[in-house]
Simulated assay, not measured.
Amino acid sequence: MRANRECHAYEAMHSMGLTTIQSFRYAIFPQILPNYLSTSLFCFEGNVRYAAILGYVGAGGIGLLLNESLGWRNYANVGMILLMLVVVVYLIESISEHYRKKLK
């Protein structure tokens, strides 16, 4: 049913004299943007987590800094890296949740 509404909105815009690009911009784009942003942020959040895990086992990235700080017993650095990792993941998740709620 939703696909029909999208198609009708696009056709209505197009029949009003808008170009194909303008019709897409005003009819389709606003409907797909929240879902696209939510999915993109979810993938980005996963990538941040995976970078920390993979880096810790030797693949580089955020986890490598964490592993090196642990090796040097620089616990202030370790704490800050972990805190920033939690904050970044929380912010990404909050933004993603905001867009998911807008979809409902």
Rank of each mutant, 00 (worst) to 15 (best):
M1C: 04
N4R: 13
E6F: 13
E6T: 10
C7S: 10
C7W: 14
H8R: 13
A9E: 09
A9R: 04
Y10W: 10
E11M: 15
E11G: 00
E11W: 12
A12C: 01
A12Y: 05
M13S: 14
M16L: 11
M16Y: 08
L18I: 00
T20N: 12
I21H: 11
Q22P: 01
Q22H: 11
Q22C: 07
Q22I: 05
S23L: 02
F24N: 02
F24Q: 00
R25Y: 12
A27F: 03
P30G: 04
I32N: 01
I32V: 15
I32A: 01
L33T: 13
P34I: 03
Y36C: 10
L37S: 04
S38A: 15
S38C: 10
T39G: 13
S40G: 10
S40L: 15
L41W: 06
L41Y: 02
F42T: 10
F42Y: 10
E45D: 09
G46N: 09
G46E: 04
G46T: 07
N47W: 05
N47G: 05
V48S: 05
V48Q: 01
R49A: 08
R49N: 06
A51V: 02
A51S: 15
I53P: 00
L54D: 05
L54Y: 09
L54V: 03
G55V: 00
Y56K: 04
V57C: 07
V57Y: 08
V57P: 02
V57G: 03
A59H: 09
G60H: 09
G60M: 07
G60K: 07
G60D: 10
G63L: 03
L64Y: 13
N67R: 10
E68C: 09
E68A: 14
E68R: 14
E68P: 00
L70V: 09
L70W: 04
L70Y: 11
G71I: 05
W72K: 09
W72L: 13
R73P: 00
N74A: 15
Y75P: 09
A76C: 06
A76T: 12
A76P: 01
V78L: 08
V78E: 02
G79E: 04
I81N: 02
L82A: 13
L82C: 14
L82P: 01
M84C: 14
V86C: 12
V87R: 05
V88D: 01
Y90K: 13
Y90A: 10
L91N: 03
E93N: 12
S94I: 10
S94A: 14
S94D: 12
I95S: 05
I95H: 01
S96V: 00
E97L: 12
E97W: 06
E97N: 10
R100W: 03
K101L: 12
K101D: 09
K102N: 14
L103D: 01
K104E: 12
